[in-house]
């Protein structure tokens, strides 16, 4: 444990409710060990604020080991902060110099309305999954798992796409606030697996349509999403999604086709 305690100036977005106007506030946080995680530093600040009768900073976090996807904010303008392939909870204060000024903001996107301070509403992601991010099998007796062979490279690649934690960094980093990496990752996972191909046309159509309905922007191949993704999900997911969408439209097997445009 290093004994060199450090001091920081934090500039944090405060917004009491979705209706109220937000703004930046400054806080001095002194005596922080470099082994403290970024969120633990906020915990420390909050305990000090509470004792001064100042409303603490609200932020989401849960597992604090980079897998649940709950945390996330812009740290000095970067989604999740200064380290590549890490969530906000995986940032340690040793990444900052003593005396640094650190700016902290919530994800900024129309489809992620602010609830309070750094807490945003990401339920739009759930609705995209609900539109088709699944394989429609029941809980029941199925064929033996080894009855279906899946080439290892396909399984490995499907896994890479499936590691998405749904944090929203891709949306926050994208100048268009597009959810294409998130949506594309799920579509790509299932496209690579035989189980997923059965409903591929309906899936891609419904998920993409839902994404648009939620108010996410379109993808213009900027690539900020891939760079900010804590799981390193490849932007090739978006290419797959676009190709699948086109193929689906031409296949005549989409839901809008089947129900004669009723969707």
């Amino acid at each position: 444990m290093s004994k060199d305690l450090r001091n920081y100036k934090l500039v944090i977005w405060r917004q009491a409710s979705p209706q109220e106007k937000g703004g930046f506030e400054q806080y001095q946080v002194d005596g922080i060990s470099p082994d403290t995680s970024f969120l633990e530093m906020l915990d420390i600040l909050n305990d000090r604020l509470i004792k001064q009768n100042i409303r603490p900073i609200e932020f989401d976090s849960d597992c604090r080991e980079g897998i649940c996807g709950a945390c996330g904010c812009l740290v000095n303008g970067q989604a999740h902060g200064p380290r590549q392939k890490a969530t906000t909870c995986q940032i340690y204060m040793r990444s900052f110099e003593n005396g640094d000024t650190i700016t902290v903001e919530p994800w900024r996107a129309k489809a992620f309305p602010v609830i309070r301070d750094l807490v945003v509403d990401r339920s739009s992601f759930d609705r995209i999954i609900s539109a088709g991010g699944y394989i429609s099998v029941k809980s029941a007796k199925h064929a033996d798992a080894n009855a279906m062979l899946i080439p290892k490279p396909d399984a490995d690649q499907a896994f890479d796409y499936a590691t998405c934690i749904g944090c929203g960094a891709c949306v926050a980093a994208c100048p268009n606030a597009s959810a294409s990496l998130f949506t594309g990752a799920k579509i790509s996972q299932f496209t690579l697996m035989p189980q997923g191909r059965v409903e591929r046309e309906k899936r891609v159509e419904r998920m993409v349509d839902q994404m648009d309905r939620e108010g996410f922007g379109g993808c213009t191949n900027i690539g900020e999403c891939e760079a900010s993704c804590p799981k390193g999900i490849s932007i090739s997911a978006i290419a797959t999604m676009k190709a699948e969408y086109l193929k689906a439209a031409l296949s005549g097997r989409t839901e809008s086709n089947a129900s004669d445009g009723a969707m």
């Binding site: 699944y134 099998v137 798992a145 062979l149 899946i150 290892k152 399984a155 499907a158 189980q195």
Partner: peptide, 22 residues
């Protein structure tokens, strides 16, 4: 044993051998 069959049917990307088996 049924759990593994269920999860594979759902598209859970378990680790596989080069044979394509789990």
């Amino acid at each position: 044993t049924s759990i593994i069959d269920q999860c594979v049917a759902q598209g859970v990307p378990f680790a596989r051998e080069y044979s394509g088996e789990l």
